[in-house]
Every structure is written in structure tokens, then in C-alpha cells.
Design a protein around this nucleic acid. Structure first.
Lengths: 334, 334
DNA sequence: AATCCGATTGGAAACGTTTCCAAGCTCGCC
DNA sequence: GGCGAGCTTGGAAACGTTTCCAATCGGATT
């Protein structure tokens, strides 16, 4: 920790050749085998390894990509991050994690920070969006890929999913099981996911035949909030099915059902969304709509690779379909 | 995305002053109010923001810290990462996530990559350790903080916890509840955590009075492996308590218990370790030994801040005590 | 034997920033 | 009125790398 790192110039002097030749021998092309051998030896003796900053300055490339979300602890984002890392790392890119904060404004701030040029691109999943944010993304000096809303019309690369359709699939599944008294447990409506899921429920509610349809909004997307909201919902009248806007809310809902002495799925069938590990290992295991977090992460990373390679490449959009995973909480297999 | 970013020189020309003055006016000291005003205006007009790479090259500081673990998806590491990010971000540091891979060798490789100078330091939690890795850490050109084993004797900064003692606490808790037929469900013994927890169980097994003590090793630290291993364990004879080496194994164990028509905690009390959200929301909620992931992450980040500020600062060690969180799976409150 | 071409090498510039150093200025004091 | 002190400013170097360009060398072709 006291010894100072060797520089390319020192390697050059040790090998008795020019700086230019040294660089070529180590990383570039157009060096004779003898030169390569000689320089390699000198580099090895000195334990040389190229300085990332110097190289970045010259190449105008950092080999870093930012991944920005509101809460890195959220299992959905964790899954995405893992997928992104797995795709980017083999190509020599590092992943920088950042926090967007809760608001559109703080997210805008973060996107603006791209101006300092510390990454070659950013993958961002905004919790809330407004026009200023959209504009800032469009003007960003490096490629930005948005995970969330589709933004084809704005010339922004995005990876979207149909969470509205996913809610529809969950409701139809319950309806097909014969459930006719269906409750919807959503999270905050002013968030992008909350709004989309609400649209999905409203759309499908009209198309099914039901004895009773009710809904309740939880304060946030957590178990505790889900428990409280589900209690309110169930207090208003008996239900035989609960559609929750994510897995944590669904687990809260199951708690509430059990508090009433009822059982899942016999008395009340429950569905979640996001298909998280937490839902898979829960008992009963949770029927959940997968929004393909891993797949979305991978898709975003692949788009980023293309864009980083060729920043003038046209914006790209990918849509990942929701997929219902039937498990015990609706009486499914396993 | 087409417009090129403004450079400091352009700001200088626009303001009609020298490069040096421009730099001083924006970031340094020793500039007159008039100069500051003038330069600020020019910078604002051009939408200037300092280039991170150029600055890093000059300052020999990247304002980045690496966080390296085997599996970024592991809830324990996620918690640490969140804590690290929360501590470092307000100080202007970015967090780069990296993967150590499973082996000591691949971890050594990663530590060696610090030679390219892309970060000011690294916080690493090695799954497996050997002498070469220790040596590489000692020789690293930037501060390294190890989360895991205490390494005071080697002059390495570390944040450790007493997971062995934690297992002891769990066993004593079960013993105090009157359980006398106790099984231990561990993960792979050749990992640092697996080995430590085994030591803990061996130590406490001698100090309690029990009718029966048995143990089984799972293939890895997952629910599935825990289920399989617990089946084997329970098949060898009746038990009234199961101590699992982490929460996922504990959940697998609960499954296995229920498969036999027994209930938790009445027939078999179960404890986990790590105190993860998944265990907290499970039903029954899991009695678990917290190893203070958040606290350890915070401590590591704080040490890193000091070391990044003064790289010649002496190595530091912090120990975070384990803490038993009693919940439903051993008949506790809530 | 002279010329030309390709392969290889070295010099120098450039990326964007901060900071050392010297020079200029103003102001106050003697 | 002259001189020194202190504040401000500008020039220039430095951080470590890659690559353009010119120069050199060797060999082959005419």
C-alpha cells in the first residue's frame, strides 16, 4: 500500500523502447513479436497494469454503466441488477449502483449528473416520471435505457412489461377457478407501477361477471401496508379472491385472511405479482404474475451494450410479457 | 446525445479569463467575487459540468468504492450494499458492485484488479479465503476492508461478527425452552460462514445437557438444499429443535417438519440465522440470529471513508455482536 | 544496383482537470 | 511619493494513456 504503481513510461524505460511502442505491444496492434516479448517481460517485472483513469481519459470511455433505482433493496431490482451485472461483466463493464430517490425531480437530478461523464450509460427504472425527466433523458450525453414504461414515442430506449395485462391474467385465472367475489389490493396510485396495475384491474373488472368487486390502496408496497389494507378490504364484506399488486402485499393479505379464521386458498385465493423468491418459498407458495425481472434486466443490459458500442444507434424498445405462475395460494400445483 | 459536452477551457474562453482562474472560481479557492460571478455565468450558459475522468486523473481519486461479494442476489449482501451505499453516497462516493466468484482464487484475481486504479478502495466479503488472498489484500494499492473473518493479526481492516457465538445463542435459547433433542442444519463446511457456524455448534453442544444431538450438511445455503438435508436429519430420529445456519435453510427445515405432519413450533422449534426479511414475513415468523448485516455494512463503509481520506491510516477492526430475535418459530412473541 | 513498398518504430499531441509558480495589481503605510 | 505586503490572475506543467504522423529499416522487385 506504500509502493507506488508502475506507469507505462516506466515500463518503456525498463524495456528500453518508446512509450508508443510499449502501448502498442501491450494493448494495441502493429508491434513485432520481439517487441511484444520484450515489453511483456518488462511489464511483468514491474507488475504493471494499465491505469483505468488514464485510459478512460484518452479513449473517452469509462467501461462503467450505472444502474439506478429508488430502492436497491427491493427484490425486483436486485434481480435486475444481478442480471445486468451478469450480462455486462463479461464485456468488461463495471456496474455502478445509484439511487434515484422517490421523486421525479431527484431522478432528473441523477440523470443530469451523467454530464460529468463517469459512466458510458445508465439503466434506470424511475418510480415516478414527469416531462422534465423525459426531456433530461432525451438530452443525456450518454445512452439511457429505461426499465418501466414503454417510451417508443419519445425516442428513448426502454424495456417494458405489461403489468396491466398481468393483473388481467391474475383476475381471469381467479375467475376461471370460479371465484366471483374479487378484491384488488393496490399500492400507491401515483407511482408508475401502481398506476399501471390500476388500469389493468379497471379494464378486466368490466369484462368478467362477478358478484362483488372491491379494492383498497395500501400506503406502500410492503407486507405491513398490505396487511392493514387487506383488513380494511375484508371488513367491508366477504371475498373469495384477492389480487395483490405485488408479492409483499399478497403476503400481508394472506395474514389478514388467516386472522379471520379463513384459509388460503380454500376460502380465499390470493395472487401476487413479481414472482419473487420470497413468494416462492412462502407457505402457501404464492401464485404470482412474473414480470420477468431477470429477463428485463438482461434485455436492458444488451441494449446498453449495443448503444455503448455505437452511441448513435437508434433507440430500441423491448417488451417482456407477463407470465402467470400458478402455485398453492390459488390451489395450483406444488 | 449529439451535442458535445462543454469543457473547462470553453468556459474560460467564454468568460474571457484563464483556465486556472476558471478552475479556481468553480471548485477551488482564491478567486475574487467578481471572477466567481463571471465564471459561474459562463459555466451556466454552456451548461458546464466538470468531467469526472479529467478530475480523477489529476486528483488521483476516483470517488468510487467497490463492493465485492460472491452473489449480489443474497439478501444478506443486499442489505450490506444498501447500508454501504447509504453511508458513502452523501460523501460523494459511488458504489461499484463486483462479483468475487466462488473461490479464493477468483477473489484474489479481483483484488489484484485494483491495480488498475478504478476505485479508491474495496469492501469485500470473501466466501472462501486462503493465504494468497490475504497477501494480495495486504499488498493492494488501495484500502481494502474485509467483511467476514476478523483479520486483526494480519494488519487488514475488517468487520467481523461472531456467527459461532450466534449459533451458541440459538442453541441455548432452545435449551432454555426445554428442548433436548436438537439438530443442526449447516451449509457447506468449506465456506467461511459454514466453518464458523460449525465451530459454534461443536462448542455449545458440549456445554448443554441433551438427549440427542445430530447434524446434517446441506449442499448450499438454499431452501431446497435445506429441505433435503432436514428430511435426512429427521429421518434418523425424532427431534424437538432444529438450528439452521441461515434463514433459507430454516425455511426448508420448516417444510420438512410439516411434511411429517408435525407443527412448528409446538413439535419442533426452528431457528434461522441472518434475520432476513424473508424470515420475518414467513409464517411462522422465524426466530433468527441477526448478524447485523446493515450494521456491518455501515461499519465497513465508515472505515472506508477514513481510509480513503488518509490511506496511511492504520488498519481498523470492528466486531458486531450477534443478536437473537425471538419470533414465532420458537414460540416467541408476535 | 537503384527504387519502392510494407512493416516497425519513435516523437509528439491530445484527452480535461488542478495547482505550482511567477507576475501584475492595488492598497496602505511610512 | 515610494515601497512593500497581500490579493488576484495567467502560464505552464502534470496526471497516464492512445494514436496520428513521420522516419527508419529491411527486403524484394525491376
Amino acid at each position: 500500500m506504500t509502493s507506488t504503481r508502475a506507469t507505462l513510461l516506466q515500463v518503456a524505460e525498463r524495456a528500453g523502447v518508446s512509450l508508443a511502442s510499449t502501448s502498442r505491444a501491450l494493448h494495441g496492434s502493429g508491434a513485432s513479436p520481439a517487441m511484444v516479448e520484450r515489453v511483456r517481460a518488462a511489464a511483468a517485472e514491474l507488475g504493471y497494469s494499465a491505469d483505468a483513469i488514464g485510459r478512460s481519459l484518452r479513449l473517452k470511455k469509462t467501461f462503467q454503466v450505472a444502474f439506478a433505482v429508488a430502492d436497491i433493496g427491493n427484490p425486483v431490482y436486485v434481480e435486475m441488477m444481478r442480471a445486468i451485472h451478469e450480462v455486462l461483466a463479461p464485456h468488461g463493464y463495471r456496474v455502478v449502483v445509484m439511487s434515484t430517490g422517490d421523486t421525479a425531480t431527484s431522478t432528473t437530478e441523477l440523470v443530469r449528473s451523467l454530464n460529468s461523464g463517469f459512466v458510458d450509460g445508465m439503466i434506470v427504472s424511475p418510480l415516478r416520471t414527469d416531462d422534465r425527466l423525459i426531456r433530461e433523458i432525451q438530452q443525456a450525453p450518454v445512452p439511457v435505457v429505461v426499465i418501466g414504461r414503454a417510451l417508443d414515442d419519445r425516442g428513448i430506449s426502454s424495456v417494458s412489461t405489461d403489468s396491466a395485462g398481468g393483473i388481467g391474467a391474475a383476475v381471469r385465472h381467479l375467475h376461471a377457478l370460479g371465484r366471483r367475489r374479487i378484491g384488488f389490493l393496490n399500492g400507491p396510485l401515483d407511482t408508475t407501477p401502481g398506476a399501471a396495475r390500476q388500469r389493468g384491474f379497471d379494464a378486466v373488472a368490466g369484462e368478467i361477471t362477478a358478484e362483488r368487486v372491491d379494492q383498497e390502496v395500501a400506503g406502500d408496497f410492503t407486507v405491513t401496508a398490505g396487511l392493514a389494507a387487506a383488513r380494511r378490504l375484508l371488513a367491508r364484506g366477504a371475498l373469495d379472491a384477492l389480487v395483490a399488486a405485488n408479492d409483499l402485499l399478497a403476503i400481508g393479505a394472506i395474514r389478514a385472511v388467516r386472522e379471520l379464521g379463513l384459509s388460503v386458498p380454500e376460502d380465499v385465493a390470493v395472487t401476487g405479482m413479481d414472482d419473487t423468491e420470497i413468494g416462492r418459498v412462502f407457505q402457501p407458495s404464492l401464485t404470482s404474475v412474473s414480470l420477468g425481472s431477470t429477463e428485463r434486466g438482461r434485455a436492458a443490459a444488451r441494449i446498453m451494450l449495443q448503444l455503448a458500442d455505437d452511441p448513435d444507434h437508434a433507440a430500441q424498445q423491448v417488451a417482456v410479457g407477463p407470465e402467470l405462475r400458478v402455485r398453492e395460494s390459488t390451489g395450483g400445483a406444488q
